[in-house]
Design a protein around this nucleic acid. Structure first.
Lengths: 235, 235
DNA sequence: ACCTGAACACCGTTCAAGT
DNA sequence: ACCTGAACACCGTTCAAGT
């Protein structure tokens, strides 16, 4: 609940890009992607939906800015380890935790290429590659592999987390998915059936980290000699 | 253009799940995700929007089934190489090519976990892991890494391809993205600026393959000894 | 310049009425 | 059982009118 005092203070402030984005994040956190409508946003800002267009181009721009804000905060959440591989792992896990806390971010990230949040992630990971011994002509491919893995799991995990929160939505989508499954020949999916047995002791975050480690192992295997050291002071 | 004869033949057939899904794919291929509305679908099927609900649960189910249909066709498009690593690479590239041909598939894949298309991809990749020397307790993590990488790039590439097709959409979104970029401090993105120089000689498909190879290298590095041979007949 | 909110042109979904 | 299409309850976006 927001106090009347806060409401009136807020109302006294002029509308701004920052206030629109902040409020959008509040709405998205509370109700997920479906809850973000320009009408809901305008109501919370005590104005009409048209007012928002004076500060952001359209609804997509609002969602993009909200996503960038969350990812930016996550990526710059404190100092990183000195070791480059551990830094990359830490950055990826910060994104994972941000999506865990704000599931709507996963869907936003997966949907639009080169949006600011993706660019920031690319930059944060890319700058650590020289210290992993990756030659410059492979920087783009290596960064792309890491970033796209993060975004892929982001989308899938976010969708799963979304299902976990909103009970009514969960029931609906699970029923739909179950209906689709009925069209599959179950005998044709021996691997999935084996995996289903492991699902109870399954930890999404650990699995996410394992995937990052796999890609880092691939990078290490390809550049075994010329790895740079990030150790602070060797003579 | 569809001939009147074809139209009347189609109209004569009863509505069915298959016809709805086929028609949805046609609409999606022609106009992308934005073009798929239940009204457009009903028009093409010469019926009302309500009729569709007799064959699929809702619009999401239509999109899910269309996605599964495209991915299923791609994954089963001819025999696979005997070598497990080459099979995994080939499967991933088939998905990439399917998304290249049907950009809307990328967005659909990235959005919903455990939908039939994702399950099929999981199954196709997972069954090749034993021949890569991956022990069973690592199957889930390894398959997850490969699948999520594919889905991540799928989403980003599909969005880019979508921009490349629909000219009006392209101009609009690029303007929006450019506006967001204006809020970034360009000096803070040295890595992205270096990557931009390589962008002209950039090949999305090759980069996608490079990422798969990186993950496969990671798997190989972790299981160097006990790799199984897929060679057909050794004594 | 910024805000307001009615109006416009759509959506997905439901459901009474038909066959 | 299947289909029809009007009706319902919404959307994002625009824009004349206000301050």
């Amino acid at each position: 609940m927001v106090s009347k005092q806060l409401l009136s203070r807020r109302r006294a402030e002029p509308l701004s890009r920052e206030r629109v984005v902040e409020t959008a994040i509040d709405i998205l956190d509370a109700g997920g992607n479906a809850a973000l409508t320009l009408r809901a946003l305008a109501d919370r800002l005590s104005t009409g939906p048209g007012a928002i267009y004076h500060h952001l181009a359209n609804k997509r721009a609002v969602a993009r800015a909200a996503t960038a804000s969350v990812i930016d905060a996550a990526l710059s959440d404190g100092p990183l380890p000195a070791d480059a591989a551990e830094s990359v792992r830490e950055l990826a896990l910060r994104v994972f935790d941000a999506i865990d806390a704000h599931p709507w971010v996963g869907a936003q990230l997966a949907l639009e290429p080169w949006q600011p949040a993706v660019v920031r992630l690319f930059e944060a990971i890319g700058t650590r590659l020289p210290d992993l011994g990756v030659p410059e002509n492979e920087h783009f491919d290596s960064a792309s592999a890491l970033v796209n893995y993060v975004l892929g799991l982001a989308g899938q995990y976010a969708a799963g987390a979304r299902l976990g929160r909103d009970e009514s939505d969960r029931a609906l989508v699970l029923r739909d998915i179950a209906e689709e499954w009925a069209h599959l020949d179950e005998a044709a999916f021996p691997f999935m059936r084996r995996m289903a047995l492991h699902l109870s002791q399954h930890d999404d975050r650990a699995q996410f980290g394992a995937g990052i480690d796999l890609i880092l192992d691939g990078i290490r295997a390809r550049h075994p000699i010329e790895r740079h050291r990030a150790a602070p002071d060797e003579p």
